[in-house]
Amino acid sequence: MNDPVPTVKFLGLTFNVANDLSVLITCLIVFVVVFALSRHIAMKPKGGQNVLEWLVEFTNGIVKGSIKGNDASHFGLYAFTLFLFIFVANQIGLFIHIQVGEYTYVKSPTADPVVTLTLSLMTIALAHYAGIAKNGAKAYFKGYLAPFTLFLPLNIFEQFTNFLTLGLRLFGNIFAGEMLLTLISGLTSSDNWISYIYSFPVELAWQGFSVFIGSVQAFVFVTLTSVYISQQLSPEE
């Protein structure tokens, strides 16, 4: 787990190849799945369209759970993409872990805080943008003084902690899951075949649990995203 990170410098920016490759693969998987499911869209749904519509209904349900009224329809696509991306990102590390030499190239992208914090930064930025776009800049900045002026540092701090906890919760869950998977697979050794027998069911159980955790964390992330957005949309509540 303390692998050195393969990095590439380009245009003066440093890129972590492991993160970027994993994100790219996640995006590719999500896109291919959605693309395959959305091929024959008809009034009378069947097959893939049913699955896709169920997913859409599910994420729309999460969004409508906290954002009231007409505003919910603006965030459906974001919630849908976010849910699928995080869900796939959480799961791919469970069965793909490509390591070349001492460099890890492919793993769960959400097991890296940079990825999760980027996602949470996007969410917080979207929430604040939506708040300003809906209520105007004046009302937005007034929101920081609610319920009275003394709350200003507290409110700023709250936004910052929202951003941190949202990203770090996801990172912590997935990172811990991957770490434990690595530990369990480390129990096996090639010169002791019995180790495969007892580590197999443990690995199996933990992978099953990780699938569950990954799904729940994707759900939690999207739920909190819509909660933060709704807080910015209607700050007085």
């Binding site: 994100v23 974001y78 993409t81 980027t118």
Partner: peptide, 16 residues
Amino acid sequence: YLGDMLFIAISFLVLM
């Protein structure tokens, strides 16, 4: 991490 963050954000937006 600016490069990473940009990469992640842009790939997410493109995916969206």
